[in-house]
Simulated assay, not measured.
Amino acid sequence: MLVLIGDNPERIKKEAALAKTCGFCPIPASSGKTNQMRLDRGGDRQANAAIYRVAVVRMRADERTKT
Protein backbone atom coordinates (compact mmCIF):
# COMPACT_ATOMS: atom_id res chain seq x y z
CA MET A 1 0.00 0.00 0.00
CA LEU A 2 2.86 2.38 0.73
CA VAL A 3 4.26 1.86 -2.74
CA LEU A 4 0.88 2.64 -4.29
CA ILE A 5 0.46 5.85 -2.31
CA GLY A 6 4.13 6.76 -2.63
CA ASP A 7 3.87 6.94 -6.43
CA ASN A 8 1.58 9.97 -6.38
CA PRO A 9 0.38 11.04 -2.91
CA GLU A 10 -1.58 14.02 -4.33
CA ARG A 11 -4.25 11.76 -5.85
CA ILE A 12 -5.00 9.91 -2.58
CA LYS A 13 -6.56 12.65 -0.44
CA LYS A 14 -9.83 10.92 0.48
CA GLU A 15 -11.08 7.39 1.05
CA ALA A 16 -13.01 7.57 -2.21
CA ALA A 17 -9.81 8.25 -4.16
CA LEU A 18 -8.15 5.23 -2.58
CA ALA A 19 -11.19 3.08 -3.40
CA LYS A 20 -11.09 4.21 -7.03
CA THR A 21 -7.35 3.60 -7.30
CA CYS A 22 -7.61 0.10 -5.83
CA GLY A 23 -10.68 -0.83 -7.84
CA PHE A 24 -13.14 -1.60 -5.07
CA CYS A 25 -15.46 1.39 -5.42
CA PRO A 26 -19.05 0.74 -6.49
CA ILE A 27 -20.14 2.01 -9.89
CA PRO A 28 -23.70 2.16 -11.20
CA ALA A 29 -24.80 -0.76 -13.37
CA SER A 30 -28.46 0.12 -13.73
CA SER A 31 -30.69 -0.31 -16.73
CA GLY A 32 -34.27 0.81 -16.96
CA LYS A 33 -36.20 0.06 -13.78
CA THR A 34 -33.40 -1.62 -11.81
CA ASN A 35 -30.96 0.23 -9.60
CA GLN A 36 -27.85 -1.88 -9.09
CA MET A 37 -24.21 -1.30 -8.23
CA ARG A 38 -21.18 -3.40 -9.13
CA LEU A 39 -17.50 -3.19 -8.24
CA ASP A 40 -15.09 -1.45 -10.57
CA ARG A 41 -12.98 -3.91 -12.58
CA GLY A 42 -10.12 -1.45 -12.99
CA GLY A 43 -7.56 -0.32 -10.48
CA ASP A 44 -4.44 -1.73 -8.92
CA ARG A 45 -4.96 -5.46 -8.41
CA GLN A 46 -2.11 -5.82 -5.93
CA ALA A 47 -3.51 -3.03 -3.75
CA ASN A 48 -6.96 -4.61 -3.95
CA ALA A 49 -5.50 -7.96 -2.87
CA ALA A 50 -3.66 -6.32 0.05
CA ILE A 51 -6.85 -4.67 1.31
CA TYR A 52 -8.69 -7.98 1.00
CA ARG A 53 -6.03 -9.71 3.11
CA VAL A 54 -6.27 -7.00 5.76
CA ALA A 55 -10.04 -7.47 5.92
CA VAL A 56 -9.77 -11.26 6.20
CA VAL A 57 -7.22 -11.04 9.01
CA ARG A 58 -9.30 -8.43 10.86
CA MET A 59 -12.37 -10.69 10.60
CA ARG A 60 -10.55 -13.26 12.72
CA ALA A 61 -9.72 -11.00 15.64
CA ASP A 62 -11.61 -7.68 15.59
CA GLU A 63 -15.20 -7.69 16.89
CA ARG A 64 -16.04 -4.42 15.12
CA THR A 65 -15.11 -5.94 11.77
CA LYS A 66 -17.18 -9.04 12.48
CA THR A 67 -20.30 -6.96 13.18
Rank of each mutant, 00 (worst) to 15 (best):
M1D: 12
M1I: 11
M1R: 07
L2K: 11
L2S: 12
G6N: 08
P9H: 01
P9W: 01
E10N: 05
R11E: 01
R11A: 03
R11P: 02
R11T: 03
I12H: 04
K13Q: 01
K13V: 02
K13I: 03
K14I: 06
E15P: 08
A19H: 06
A19D: 10
K20S: 00
K20G: 01
C22Y: 10
C22L: 14
F24A: 02
F24T: 11
P26M: 00
P26L: 03
P26K: 05
I27G: 01
I27A: 01
A29G: 06
S30H: 06
S30A: 01
S30W: 04
S31L: 01
S31D: 02
S31G: 12
S31P: 03
S31I: 04
G32H: 10
G32A: 01
K33R: 08
N35E: 05
Q36E: 10
M37I: 14
M37D: 02
M37Q: 14
R38V: 06
R38Q: 14
D40Q: 09
D40G: 02
D40T: 06
D40Y: 04
R41Y: 07
R41P: 09
G42P: 04
D44H: 14
D44S: 08
Q46N: 11
Q46K: 08
A47Y: 00
A47W: 03
A47R: 02
N48E: 08
A49R: 14
A49F: 07
A49S: 08
A50F: 09
A50Q: 09
I51P: 06
I51N: 07
Y52I: 11
Y52W: 09
R53M: 14
V54Q: 12
V54E: 07
V54F: 07
A55C: 15
V56Q: 03
R58M: 10
M59R: 13
R60W: 02
A61C: 14
A61M: 09
A61Q: 10
A61H: 13
D62K: 03
D62E: 12
E63Y: 11
E63K: 10
T65Y: 13
K66P: 00
T67I: 15
